[in-house]
């Protein structure tokens, strides 16, 4: 089954940032075996949109994210960011990982500085910019701290500050909260929505949790099957900031769950 291209994106004025055009991915495992991870998928993502890729593990959602990040190359099709083809990783499409991926040999502020262009910015200007993103995440007191001294939630907030600092066109987030406890997660849902509203960043967020998807996304794209494809798309027009436990969020989550069950049977 091939995917359906999104026909209507709500407001027709929206500026398209990312175009995925018939992208599929086949992996070579051993000598001769090949595994199709992703059937041809097409989609468009608008500037400032918060899109969530959701689906069971092995559905191709992370494969799609890695392709957009440029870590792997599509077998067929192409990916365009602002009309330019994606061929390798770069700071215009910054990725945030499930494990924070902060460098333990740098302290907090040096981690945030890391992605800022060295040639263009004076070291003091880089630090000032990094500091402003730490302030955005309420972490300014911890700029000199070592990474191992932070809690799990703080590490992910530093990782978010590090990903935001180079001002990427697209923020790619791969199940970043799955290792955190519930209270910290709820805090971070609110934080992420606030950041989205303040910075108007285009965000692609990958998760396997329907409630998380319903709480965060402007648009949820459900991946399923093997090879993976987009089987369902849901626009969520709830006001922000949304509460994770809000009945309307729950209702959308329930809708997503039943859709997924339909697609699996």
């Amino acid at each position: 089954m091939t995917s359906d291209t999104p026909q209507s994106n709500g407001n027709g004025m929206a500026e398209v940032t990312l175009v995925v055009d018939g992208v599929s991915k086949t992996f070579e495992t051993n000598m001769q075996k090949t595994v199709a991870a992703l059937a041809p998928v097409s989609m468009q993502i608008n500037k400032g949109e918060f899109v969530v890729f959701v689906g069971p593990s092995g559905c191709g959602k992370s494969t799609m994210l890695n392709l957009i990040a440029g870590f792997t190359q599509p077998t067929t099709g192409k990916i365009l960011l602002d009309g330019k083809e994606v061929t390798k990783p770069g700071r215009d499409r910054l990725m945030m990982f499930q494990e924070h991926g902060l460098f333990p040999w740098l302290n907090v502020i040096d981690n945030v500085c890391y992605g800022l262009k060295r040639k263009l910015l004076h070291p003091r200007a880089r630090r000032e910019k990094a500091r402003s993103y730490l302030r955005l995440m309420h972490l300014e007191e911890y700029e000199k701290a070592n990474i191992h001294e932070l809690s799990g939630g703080m590490k992910q907030r530093v990782a978010l500050a590090r990903a935001l600092a180079p001002d990427p066109r697209l923020l790619l987030i791969d199940e970043p909260f799955s290792a955190l406890d519930t209270v910290v997660r709820l805090e971070l849902y609110a934080e992420l929505q606030r950041i989205h509203q303040e910075t108007h960043k285009t965000i692609i967020f990958v998760t396997h949790e329907m409630q998380e998807a319903a709480c965060l996304g402007d648009r949820v794209m459900m991946f399923s099957g093997s090879p993976g494809a987009v089987v369902h798309e849901l626009k969520i027009d709830l006001p922000r900031p949304r509460n994770f436990t809000d009945p309307q969020v729950q209702a959308h989550a329930q809708d997503l769950i039943s859709r997924l069950q339909e697609n699996r049977s």
Binding site: A69, F71, K88, P89, G90, R91, R93, L94, M95, F97, E99, G101, L102, F103, Y114, G115, K117, R162, P166, L172
Partner: peptide
């Protein structure tokens, strides 16, 4: 490997990987 991936997404050129990561 995550450090290498993080460095690449943060725009580290291949030649700078040695010194920075």
């Amino acid at each position: 490997p995550i450090y290498l991936r993080a460095a690449r997404t943060l725009g580290t050129p291949r030649w700078a990987m040695y010194g920075r990561v």
